[in-house]
Design a protein around this nucleic acid. Sequence first.
DNA 1: CCAAGATACGGAGGCACCCTCCGTTTAACA
DNA 2: TGTTAAACGGAGGGTGCCTCCGTATCTTGG
Lengths: 212, 212
Amino acid sequence: MDDHTDQTRKPRADAVRNRERVLEAAKAVFNAGGPEASLEAVAKRAGVGIGTLYRHFPTREDLFEAVYRREVEQLSELAEHLRSAKDPVDALRRWLRSAVEFVATKKGMSAALALTYQSSSELAAFSMDRLTKAIGSLLGRAAEAGQMRGDMSPEDLLRALIGMCYMHDQPGWQSSVLRMLDVFVDGLRVQPAAKAKARAAKRTTPPEKRKR
Amino acid sequence: MDDHTDQTRKPRADAVRNRERVLEAAKAVFNAGGPEASLEAVAKRAGVGIGTLYRHFPTREDLFEAVYRREVEQLSELAEHLRSAKDPVDALRRWLRSAVEFVATKKGMSAALALTYQSSSELAAFSMDRLTKAIGSLLGRAAEAGQMRGDMSPEDLLRALIGMCYMHDQPGWQSSVLRMLDVFVDGLRVQPAAKAKARAAKRTTPPEKRKR
DNA sequence: CCAAGATACGGAGGCACCCTCCGTTTAACA
DNA sequence: TGTTAAACGGAGGGTGCCTCCGTATCTTGG
């Protein structure tokens, strides 16, 4: 009875490949057809059997969650890449734009997300954490370079971003949010004259919230 | 060709009755089983055939919308009744409590509501209007009686209410919201000493937002 | 009160999708 | 290359969706 075989086996290549394919297909199908789209359609688009889909993602919610998680991770990685951009402020701006785009493509999925978020608060925690860190990284670099106020926490910025996107049912919301974000980033920017003062305030008591 | 028959006929009694029954059943079934609940279950509970249900509400969304509208109207009517209560401040407080309860029973339906709101912005407009008027009526009476500040608009109060309920996934959110509302109403209350001043300020420039 | 016509009712039936189950295939390891 | 665990695919039973139409019921004019 050689039960010493509990050393984990390498996962099968086809399994890994298929999982990836299904995620890709699901992203496309859900974005196009909304959260009610047929899972059989997803399987067909992925070029796998329906059984395979169900083995990887036993419930519809599991699939939602996985797709969403993956995209959050991609946003997070984008922040990683943007860290090496020349202009830190521009990098932050670009990342925010990508985030808005991310929300935009999820338009049809908002109901599904509400449902998923409700059933798995762990997912909410995960994405908040990930996104906060992404923003924090970009924000921190810009602050260290002395180009931005240091008294805005990543959490605050994320909340502002979410709040702005929350009104995404009005027509033209996207450009509106983009405009607001630009204004916002400009506001965060350290004015040349005030640069020294901002650097001094970086790790001390945050200054009183400026009016208008 | 006597086409003068366009004088509207009285609607059939059974049709009216069945419509009402379906709405009642839908409310119960959706609250219990979430927005995915079977429409056939709704029909069965209402004691009507599935065909009848579909004639009255051709799509699932139509049914959602009708149920929701009806409840908003009930909230609105409650405000009407509360207008004749003795204590205007207490009336407002009671209405707010009912509104929170209304949200609470909709817990499972939040995803459906998101969906419905998205597809029919007219519904959103309707309910905002209705609820704003309901609050306005209670608020106005309390202000006229000199028991409350007159510089809070119904829209603001409604927004605050919605905002507070927006966090309804944390455990214990309901009591938290109720507590916050109490604080809020207390804050709106005119202090005996300041009563005269408040009455004077009623229709002029709002005073600076009070601290703490 | 009755007849006639308008209107609403119910549920059978066809269809799409959900999800499980298991015989077949394939990749990892020795 | 053989063995075996793991993954694959899709047939099939079940459920819910929605339409369609013969039947039942209500309103109205006489």
